[in-house]
């Protein structure tokens, strides 16, 4: 199973800033290993964020994004103690969801 994400979310003057660090290899499928074989592609394809169950961000990721991706974004609304959930799905169908309370 995939390793947990690190999520920080803080609300200030009606705007919530979210910083997410995802743990993922993000293999492009173009790299070769030491014996010359292609390393199969394996990367995050979709990322979504929900504030109290309501979607505030949907993103499509691809091979141009680095290993262990870092994503920061802001959305209007959100208050201390609200739930913020981030989920991703990758090219092999692996999933990971993590949740934090907005600070």
């Amino acid at each position: 199973m995939a390793d947990p994400m690190k999520i920080r979310a803080s609300a200030k003057e009606g705007v919530t800033e979210v910083k997410v660090l995802m743990s993922h290899e993000m293999e492009t499928g173009q790299r070769k290993d030491s014996s010359g074989n292609l390393v199969p592609a394996h990367f995050i394809t979709e990322v979504t964020a929900e504030h109290n169950g309501k979607q505030v961000l949907a993103a499509q990721f691809g091979t141009a994004i680095s290993k262990n991706p870092y994503l920061a974004f802001k959305f209007k609304g959100g208050a201390k103690g609200d739930k913020l959930a981030v989920s991703w799905v990758d090219s092999k169908g692996d999933k990971r969801s993590d949740e934090v309370l907005i600070g």
Partner: peptide, 12 residues
């Protein structure tokens, strides 16, 4: 520094 992937390893 804002998104140091070492923090993921720290959690692990």
């Amino acid at each position: 520094a804002d998104g140091n992937p070492a923090e993921l390893l720290e959690m692990k």
